[in-house]
Design a binder for these strands. Structure first.
Lengths: 132, 132
DNA sequence: TTCTGTGCAAATCTTTTGCATGGCA
DNA sequence: TGCCATGCAAAAGATTTGCACAGAA
């Protein structure tokens, strides 16, 4: 993988020790929450502030250096029904139920047998594609 | 579908106008956020409190009458890399990268051609299955 | 030297809790 | 009637913002 420094150089963000520390932490853990990042960086870097983590995470996301794993939509609820997949529009947040294909079910079953499955497909819905 | 009243009778929750209104709203919209539920119910029911919505949503979730669609884990981040699927443990919240199967890719492509796809599989990981 | 990033504190937003009252069974 | 649910207000938690100072280019 590219060095952390290089990742920043390719974005519009200045290189700072705080940003390097955040990237290092994410790289080490694979995935981490704001709180986890904060707690771990604080040990090496006692003066770092939570606000700095938030600002940098948002900036890095903006620049597409990092990714949000659980796409942070407001939680939504539905009446419990048959298993089905959800298509969630990344732009407008609209949720559509989609049929849970047998093919997909079998394929996941292959990797995670007997595991409870919930499937979300994040994409851009018809209404939003076009008006980028 | 069962009547809203019946859904509540089968749970351990008392039937109240507020709960019926919440279920009706979810049924009408398919999926709704706390805020949406609140705003809409308030029109018919001006005295209802946001805290009541929260309490009831949590109670209904507990009783499995309703479902949370975007499983509410803390948002997590990762350094941007090749597309891959995520397996997220519903108990401990641990995230594992899993290979994004060509089969699944093709299957989704069939329904949502040219759409950006992100795939999350929620289940119970090996460490957590067993210690229910 | 310039301009962006940092850290603090305050503001804002979201969610939970405690408690007195009201209403379902 | 007994007990759970409601509504209010306060508390707690999460995230954002403003501003003065520090540090990267």
């Amino acid at each position: 993988m590219k060095s952390y420094k290089m990742l920043l150089e390719e974005s519009n963000l200045k290189i700072t020790p705080q940003r390097l520390a955040i990237l290092k932490e994410l790289d080490k853990k694979g995935h981490a929450s704001i709180e986890e990042i904060y707690e771990n960086i604080k040990e090496m870097f006692p003066s770092i502030s939570l606000a700095t983590i938030y600002k940098n995470i948002n900036a890095l996301k903006e620049e597409n250096v990092i990714n949000e794993v659980c796409l942070h939509q407001k939680p939504k609820f539905e009446i419990t029904k048959e298993p089905h997949a959800h298509f969630i529009c990344k732009k407008c947040g609209k949720i559509e139920d989609v049929e849970f294909s047998k093919v997909i079910d079998k394929e996941i079953e292959k990797y995670y047998p007997n595991s409870q499955k919930e499937l979300y497909i994040y994409g851009i819905c018809k209404d939003c594609s076009g008006n980028s």
